[in-house]
Amino acid sequence: MYKIIITLLLCCCATVYGAEVDNALLKKNLEAATIQIEVLKSQVDVMKSYQDKFLSTVYWSLGTVAALVVFLAGFNWFTNNRNAEKESSLHKEMISNELNNITNTLNNKFLDHLSENKVKQDAAIENLKNDLENLFARDLNNKLRPIDRDLKKIKRQLYESQYNEYMEKKYYSNALVVVCNLLDLSVDDYDFQSNTTDALAKVETTLKVAKENHHLNRIKPNTIAQITSSLIPFEDKHGIVIKRIHQQLSGIE
């Protein structure tokens, strides 16, 4: 019985001692845990500060990157805008130069065409003018021919009257001058042959009568030169008569 009681006492003591030991251990464990918690808190605080610094660095970097992106986007837009303005200006200049070249080419072609047309028009006007002048000249000649013929007829009658008067007065030199006028009048006469033959006959007759009356030396040298000149247009058709006249003239000293 005593053994049992002693055993129980020992158990109780052991239990109490064990409880005290456990309490002491538990207290030490609690202190250690508290210390670890404090350490962990300090570590957490340190990590939190590191995290805050890291986040601030990240935010700053993101802000810097965003600013760079905005700056680059703005610079790219500004550059593109300037390039677009330059390209637009270059395109406008190219278009303006091309339009100027086309305008100059068209103007030159128009001026050349206008010049060619002007030359053709001037030539056509000149031809028309010449045709009209020729037409008017022919018409005028046709209208004036009878008048000219009548005038020549009147002149011839006047010259023949003067010739007869000079022959009566024995002014043989003056009579020969009048005969030269008759010859000159016969060059363009419608009745060329008969009037020319009559005038040449008057020259021969005048020289012959002057020789018979010994008046050859009174014929002036300029009259002889005028006779020689007036005979030239008729040498082909009246060569024999003109040769006789030259023989008569050669006898004048």
Rank of each mutant, 00 (worst) to 15 (best):
Q121H: 14
D112F: 07
A124P: 00
E126K: 15
T105G: 06
F136Y: 10
N134L: 14
N97P: 00
L132W: 01
V119E: 15
N100P: 00
K118E: 09
N108I: 12
K109A: 12
N130T: 04
V119F: 10
N134I: 08
T103K: 02
D131Y: 03
K118L: 09
N107H: 02
F110D: 02
I95G: 10
N101M: 13
L128F: 09
A124R: 05
M94F: 06
D122W: 13
T103Q: 01
L111V: 12
T103M: 08
F110M: 02
D112N: 12
N97I: 01
D131S: 03
N108W: 10
K118S: 03
E133W: 09
T103Y: 11
N130I: 01
E116K: 01
L106W: 04
K109Y: 08
H113V: 12
E116H: 13
N127C: 05
N108Y: 02
N101S: 12
A137Y: 10
A137D: 05
N100Q: 07
L106H: 00
V119Y: 03
H113F: 15
A124F: 14
L132D: 07
E116Y: 06
E133A: 11
E126M: 15
S115H: 13
S96V: 04
L135T: 10
L128W: 04
N117M: 11
K109H: 11
I102G: 02
K129E: 12
L111R: 04
E98I: 06
I102P: 00
D131M: 08
D112Q: 12
L135R: 02
I125H: 04
K109W: 08
E126A: 14
L111A: 13
S115N: 09
M94P: 01
V119M: 07
K109P: 02
M94V: 13
L114E: 05
F110Y: 10
F136G: 05
D122C: 10
L111C: 09
S115T: 10
I95P: 03
I125D: 13
N117S: 06
N127T: 06
K118G: 01
V119P: 00
L135Q: 04
E98M: 07
I125L: 13
L99V: 10
E116W: 08
I125F: 09
N127S: 12
T103S: 08
L135M: 13
H113Q: 15
E98S: 04
A123M: 13
K129C: 04
D112I: 08
M94H: 06
A123S: 08
A137S: 03
N104Q: 11
